[in-house]
Write a protein that binds this DNA or RNA. Structure first.
Lengths: 233, 233
DNA sequence: CGATTCCTTGATCAGTATCAAGGGCGGTGG
DNA sequence: CCACCGCCCTTGATACTGATCAAGGAATCG
């Protein structure tokens, strides 16, 4: 039973569709939960028993094969919605990439509430449509882009998403940021190996498009050339 | 102003969320339109001015780069919904792969109607969630599967989707079917070249998993082995 | 301070793309 | 009805990108 009024993602999460008294009801259904880096909230193939809003931190959605190949199919940031409302098992796992806080609901409770609140469903629909567009752009990357184009695209995407959810300032993007992903995870998002990611980052650094102050930090030094390389439309 | 009551996809399209009198109103907003093979209904980057239900035929959703690379990011079958309701430009083109009939609405008219009909939005949300799950499974294919796994997966997927929308019988899948895609388009869905697709089909044929009576026909002779190869969960 | 984990770099390999040629099918016009 | 033409598909030879194998180095944590 959290204080939604004071929630840092209050105005960006789907909750923004609700009036104060509706929010009060929803707040009784959910609870704030800490998730440690590496902890898995939902397992691929399990029935989707919970949904959640991300308050802080970054989580990955991932699919894997029996023989151990993994593909990250989504990365979620603060104010994003997690989970599969209205039935069905989850087709992917949800795992924290950083320590995170989420506002979690049982699916049954959330579904019941959502059924009564069309505005919430509308917000959810818009978010899902946006997510689908993003997934499709990523399909183009995975199907048709080269390794260097993929890495450039990822850096710009993270820059944009971190910028738009940044608390400190409402910028369209950030030129300096901390990667929420390690090299292996970058490979898993891009459909590449860790070695290829590393080599491409080195190339971008040598071409003076970026610098890498430490293994988790990126500074974009020439956004324009990076965008050209990323085939940004 | 079409006769929705008699519509062949009446019970499977999103219209199934509506009561007869609501359907009568919606029917006045839309019209039935023929789309010839190869004709493009929506262009990538254009403002999304129309949405539609597919009545018959098959269409592709595709994204392309300035230098001519193309990725098919979705294939839609009868009863599927096309378009991006509630604002935004389309992030992909929609083109008929076969001659098709669609029930088309201006986005403005559809949005207005949908706003007043939560059940319709609910149906749309469920469809969009399903589509997102499918897109994410495809991301795994594009990022991590080998050429032979990809081709096997595609054949099974088409078999399943044609089966579930087949008018003649409600089967879970079909063992014999006509491909709505030529080799180039199969490559564009799978992130492969036409030559690689052709070679993999030949291999599947030589391994007696399928036969290819003519260039557009496929017969699945050993679904079980094909599923193993496709890494079907 | 040592151990472990993560990252980079190098050498080699493999899978798929590219380049190139030929064949079969369907459509068209004589 | 048949011959020709064009398109799509298959197959082969070669090239190249990124994967794999391997080793060393840097940052992090106890």
């Amino acid at each position: 039973m959290s204080d939604c009024e004071a929630c840092v993602v209050r105005n960006r999460a789907i909750c923004s569709a609700l009036l104060p008294d509706e929010l009060a009801i929803l707040s009784k259904l959910g609870r704030k939960q800490h998730v440690s880096r590496g902890q898995t909230l939902v397992w691929e193939g399990d029935e989707a028993l919970v949904v959640a809003n991300v308050i802080s931190g970054v989580l990955k959605l991932s699919v894997s094969t029996a023989d151990g190949r993994e593909q990250i199919v989504g990365v979620v940031f603060p104010s994003d919605f997690i989970g599969r409302p209205f039935g069905k098992e989850s087709s992917y796992s949800v795992t924290a990439l950083t320590d995170a806080h989420v506002c979690i609901f049982t699916r049954a409770a959330f579904d019941g509430f959502a059924k009564e609140h069309p505005d919430l469903q509308h917000k959810l629909l818009q978010r899902t449509l946006d997510e689908l567009d993003r997934a499709r752009q990523w399909m183009m990357l995975l199907g048709r882009k080269t390794a260097s184009e993929r890495v450039a695209t990822l850096l710009l995407e993270i820059s944009n998403r971190m910028g738009s959810t940044s608390c400190t300032q409402i910028l369209p993007f950030l030129d300096e940021f901390e990667l929420p992903l390690d090299r292996q995870q970058m490979g898993d998002v891009l459909g590449l190996t860790i070695e290829t990611v590393s080599r491409q980052l080195t190339k971008l650094k040598e071409a003076n498009m970026i610098s890498l102050p430490d293994r988790r930090s990126v500074v974009i030094k020439d956004r324009h050339r990076l965008q050209d390389l990323a085939l940004a439309a």
